[in-house]
């Protein structure tokens, strides 16, 4: 197998504070191959957005990478300076965000914002920019490119705005697209359109995709492999089919049991008791231990190591769910 497009190794991200650094993300490792769709799921505060923002070094506030490496195409982005990063942002790695309205500049026309990347990176001669802009707009399914290019973001609907944001991210033909909850703010029929668009674009352009979401359904419909994050760490990684058929980590199992799925209507949901720990006060051992039904004394002593699973992926748990079991014990 060829070397991966992106290899994140032992990444740790923290915020320096008065009483030591608060770790937002700890020891996160994963790889994404060219053309692959990789999902990262987890609840708010688990570090999933922080992780992908770190990839293009867009960390907010005082948060910073404390250790680990992010290798994209042989270059370590974790240690790269701004001058090295600049050509990579946009041209190598594109990004789209949750709220397309705030991701777009309200005082520039959509067309201007799409061509901005071409102008900045200078990869396309100026007379061909317009053609490239229209090409990208057609690609993302924006009707009537000439009219929409002349519009301002507030004149577009929510779905059109997210399409415009995707066009901006795609205009320099990135090899990797980072999508941070790209459909969370959209209605369900529009969400279906955007997810289908992302899948189509990936196949057509051979681009890799990292999709961060809280919605297991979105991951199921879009990704090849998925990582489940909890309290700053990846607790399980698996090919998409296995995570739903035979989840190993108790948190993954619990997460699947807390979503109402059509087939289970009127069976009680099994929520996870309690709440994720505060990043500043994580337990010493497994951070899921206080909420875990399989908790044993060993779980509280040290964070469990990584166990590789048959068929790819793995999990970090001392007492995983049995390998070939159903998605849940009562299912």
């Amino acid at each position: 197998m060829t070397s991966p497009l992106l290899a994140v190794e032992h990444l740790a991200i923290g915020i320096p504070g008065g009483e030591g650094t608060v770790a937002l993300v700890e020891d996160v490792s994963f790889t994404v191959r060219a053309g692959e769709a990789y999902g990262i799921v987890g609840e708010s505060g688990c570090g999933k957005s922080t992780t992908i923002r770190a990839i293009i070094r867009l960390l907010a506030g005082r948060a910073g990478i404390t250790s680990g490496s992010i290798r994209f195409d042989g270059q370590d982005l974790a240690r790269a300076d701004e001058a090295t990063l600049r050509p990579l942002r946009g041209a190598g790695i594109g990004m789209i965000f949750q709220d397309p309205l705030t991701a777009l500049n309200p005082v520039l026309t959509v067309g201007r914002q799409i061509t901005e990347g071409l102008r900045y990176h200078g990869t396309v001669p100026s007379r061909e920019r317009r053609a490239r802009m229209q090409e990208v707009m057609r690609l993302v399914g924006l009707p009537d490119p000439a009219r929409i290019a002349a519009s301002y973001p507030h004149e577009l609907s929510g779905g059109q705005r997210q399409r415009a944001a995707i066009a901006i991210a795609l205009v320099c033909s990135p090899r990797l697209l980072l999508a941070d909850e790209p459909t969370t703010a959209l209605d369900v029929t529009i969400q279906a359109q955007i997810l289908k668009l992302l899948s189509d674009l990936r196949h057509r352009l051979g681009m890799a995709l990292i999709l961060v979401t809280h919605d297991l359904g979105v991951v199921a419909q879009t990704c090849d492999r998925v990582a489940v994050m909890y309290s700053g760490r990846i607790v399980e990684e698996a090919p998409i089919a296995r995570i739903f058929a035979a989840p190993r980590h108790p948190y993954t199992v619990a997460l699947l049991n807390s979503i109402p799925r059509g087939t289970r209507a009127h069976h009680p949901l099994h929520p996870i008791a309690g709440m994720p720990p505060d990043p500043a006060e994580r337990p010493r051992g497994c951070s899921f231990a206080p909420r875990c039904p399989n908790m044993q004394p060993a779980c509280e002593r040290a964070f469990p190591g990584w166990t590789a699973a048959a068929g790819g992926g793995g999990f970090a748990c001392y007492h995983p769910a049995p390998g070939q079991a159903e998605a849940s014990p009562d299912g």
Binding site: A192, K196, G217, V218, A220, Q221, A241, F244
Partner: peptide, 12 residues
């Protein structure tokens, strides 16, 4: 039909 089902075998 638009609900993303948490079931990869049911890709829309």
């Amino acid at each position: 039909a638009s609900i993303p089902r948490a079931d990869p075998s049911a890709v829309g």
